[in-house]
Design a protein around this nucleic acid. Structure first.
Length: 546
RNA sequence: GGCCCCGUGGUCAAGCGGUUAAGACAUCGCCCUUUCACGGCGGAGACAUGGGUUCGAUUCCCGUCGGGGUCACCA
């Protein structure tokens, strides 16, 4: 009896691996084209880190005319969650990060290297596991959980490394006949790699992002096929990324420690290993320490958070690019209008340790991004957002879109566009007073600034509207009239004039216009008063000064 | 604990043996024909630490301290 019989007994149905090697040939791409992927497990929630990885991966693929695909890693059936696949795909699509190849929502595959769902690849993994058993490079292991615990306890007692390796193994050197007999008797088993590694030897690995890393060879006989017949992550990674012809693995850096194992797996399977780019995760400060953005503790870890807050996707992408390649920011400064595609992204410029997530910075980026939008774009975005998250706002801006457009157009589209909205959920606050019914509803006290005397206020307002106001004035005329009004009532025409001689005036033109501003908007701080008055129109203004 | 990685202002970060140690966000002040939002100018603010190597270390080496990752039939 030999390995062949053992292998046939364990996987009688498995095809010869040559079948798969032919079925998934080398990809016909130009020199240097990167084939990479995003490989999430379907846990029903898209993490900002996944978006980050996908952004980097898709960017690299695009830049080299390569391929970006998504493979769903669902080999842990216990963690399976309903609709998780469409959740992931929708999130990617929302940020223009849809893959070239993937599992479709209806379960079919898009692309020639599928299935893109691991649970559908069981036969493939088993074929390769079988080939390993045939060569004596993998073996069935019958150790129970209790046995494994016992081994670990002994190791801890002896202050040795824990794990299933070398002299601590029980099934590694089991005679083939005995293994066959146990299997025939129906004993439970899993398949382990028969690791050829020697921990006294070092292997050198050059990571695309982290640079040179040296670690001991792997000597753990890791399990490659679980008792449910599905592969572990490690084995699936080697088989899939070989067959899908991935040449650059971009993944979170929690995987670096597995590199020796993975390289060994590729070697044992006779595959050419891919290059690796291990990305540092996005971190969060927590009590003086750093930790990864957590699904449970940090709302901003979920991609859905940005949609709910109304932070535009363009802003999220720009911010993520800032973190990924810090030179992106200065490139953007000099290329405000250019599409992202024109920025040359470089993996080796990525940071090696995790950056703290900075919401303030994100909102600053977002504010700038929004300032480049036209009034129409802003209106449409706010319409879309409010439709789902703020029905009052939606109703308000939807009933007279032409007017809403004018409101969002205030100080927009000029060289120094307004930057007061950093997320759509801010929009309501910044425009609501422009709507007459909302203006009437609010009964807050006017927050007058310098001039608070009721009679003086009435005098300013009445004089202005009776003697100076004309809705048809151009900006300069309007401005001069404010000055004339100031002078007439004993205020300085210019602020400087007042500052030079504060005792000579009751105040200055700024104080006068503040009174008008507050009267008209019930705000001390607003965009340009002239533009506001133009948009409001005569009827609305008359109503407001009563 | 073993193994691996990292350590420049509050945050993100340039820097690769000789620099007045960039820049962005945040912060403070001034200016910008009236507020606010911008924009401009300026201020404050950093090489974790101790040893080496060197004519010279933020930069190279070692130790210490600090941070992160990983040691599953989870990915």
């Amino acid at each position: 009896m030999g390995y062949k019989e053992l292998a046939d007994l364990i996987f009688p149905e498995a095809k010869d691996i040559s079948y798969y090697e032919e079925k998934y040939p080398e990809r016909d791409l130009k020199e240097g084209a990167i084939v990479t992927r995003f490989a999430p497990s379907p846990t029903g929630f898209t993490h900002i880190g996944g978006l980050y990885q996908s952004l980097v991966a898709k960017k690299m693929a695009r830049q080299t005319e390569g391929v970006f695909f998504v493979r769903i890693e669902d080999t842990d059936q216990k963690r399976e969650i309903e609709n998780a696949v469409s959740e992931i795909l929708n999130s990617l699509a929302e940020y223009d990060l849809s893959p070239d190849e993937t599992l479709n929502e209806d379960g079919t595959d898009k692309g020639n290297y599928g299935p893109y769902l691991q649970s559908k690849r069981k036969d493939i993994y088993q074929a390769y596991a079988k080939s390993l058993i045939e060569k004596g490079l993998a073996y069935p292991c019958f150790c129970s959980q209790e046995t494994l615990n016992e081994i670990r306890e002994n190791q801890e007692k002896a202050k040795q490394r824990t794990g299933y390796y070398g002299k601590w193994t029980r099934c590694r050197n089991m005679p083939i006949d005995m293994a066959i007999e146990k299997i025939k008797n129906g004993e439970d088993y899993i398949i382990r790699l028969k690791s050829p590694g020697n921990p006294d030897k070092k292997i050198k690995h050059k990571d695309v992002i982290k640079g040179n890393i040296e670690f001991p060879e792997n000597d753990q006989d890791v399990v490659i096929i679980k008792s449910d017949g599905l592969p572990t992550y490690h084995f699936a990674h080697a088989v899939d990324d070989h067959l899908m012809r991935t040449n650059l693995v971009i993944r979170a850096d929690e995987w670096v420690a597995s590199v020796p194992l993975h390289l060994q797996l590729f070697s044992v399977l006779g595959f050419k290993p891919p290059r690796y780019a291990h990305i540092a995760p996005i971190m969060k400060e927590d009590g003086g320490n750093k930790r990864k953005l957590s699904k449970r503790k940090d709302p901003e870890a979920a991609v859905s958070y940005y949609r709910e807050e109304g932070i535009p996707k363009e802003a999220v992408i720009e911010y993520l690019m800032n973190i990924a390649n810090s030179n992106f920011e200065s490139w953007r400064k000099g290329n405000k209008e250019k599409p992202l595609d024109e920025f040359k992204f470089e993996l080796n410029k990525m940071g090696v340790s995790g950056a703290l997530f900075d919401m303030v910075k994100l909102l600053d980026v977002s504010k700038t991004v929004i300032s480049t939008f036209t009034a129409e774009e802003v209106l449409n975005y706010v319409l879309d957002w409010s439709k789902v998250y703020d029905s009052e706002l939606y109703e308000l801006i939807n009933r007279d879109k032409e007017y809403s457009l004018k409101v969002f157009g205030i100080e927009r589209g000029n060289v120094k566009p307004r930057k007061d909205i950093s997320k759509w959920s801010d929009a309501k606050q910044s425009i609501i007073y422009m709507f007459d019914d909302k203006f009437k509803e609010s009964n807050e006290e006017y927050e007058y600034q310098k001039i608070t005397d009721k009679e003086e206020i009435d005098k300013i307002v009445n004089t202005y509207f009776n003697e100076y106001f004309d809705i048809n004035d151009d900006k300069e005329t309007w401005f001069n009239k404010m000055k004339d009004l100031s002078e007439k009532l004993g205020y300085a025409r210019e602020v400087k004039e007042y500052k030079a001689n504060p005792d000579g005036f009751k105040g200055h033109v700024g104080d006068i216009s503040t009174v008008i501003r507050v009267k008209l908007t019930r705000r001390a701080n607003t965009p340009d008063l002239y533009e506001i008055m133009k948009v409001l129109g005569e009827d609305s203004i008359k109503m407001r000064i009563k």
